[in-house]
Amino acid sequence: MGLGFAVGVFGVLILAHAAYSTIQYRGLLKIMEEEFSGPPMNVVIELLLGFAVCMWAALTVPGNFLSIHPYADENRIVSLPANLDFMIFNHRGKAFPLDLDLKLKH
C-alpha cells in the first residue's frame, strides 16, 4: 500500500514535469519564432514513463481484483443458509439432550 502509493505520487510528479517541460519548450519556440510541430523526444519518453507508473499504481493500490465468474470459488454458492427464521425446536434432537453441564454462571 505504502509503496504503491509512493509510486503513484512519483508518476503524477513525472506527468507534471512533462507538462512543465512542454510549456517551457513552447515558450522557447516562441522566442526563436519557430512553429510547434510536436513535443521533444525526452518529453514523450517522460509521458510514457509517467503513464506506465501511474497505471501500475492505480491497478495495485485499491486492492486485488475479484472474480466475476459465477463459477469462481468466491462466487459459487455451494449451500443455502439454514432457514433460521423458520427453525423449529421439537425436532429429533430433542430425544438426545446434550449431557453437558451448560449453565450461565453469573
Binding site: L84, M87, F89, G93, K94, P97, L98, L102, K103, L104
Partner: peptide, 19 residues
Amino acid sequence: AIAAMDCQSIDAAKDCIKV
C-alpha cells in the same frame, strides 16, 4: 439463547434471556 433452545437446554436459554 437461540442455540440453547435448539438444543433443549431451557435453563441456559432462560438465563441468557433474563440478562
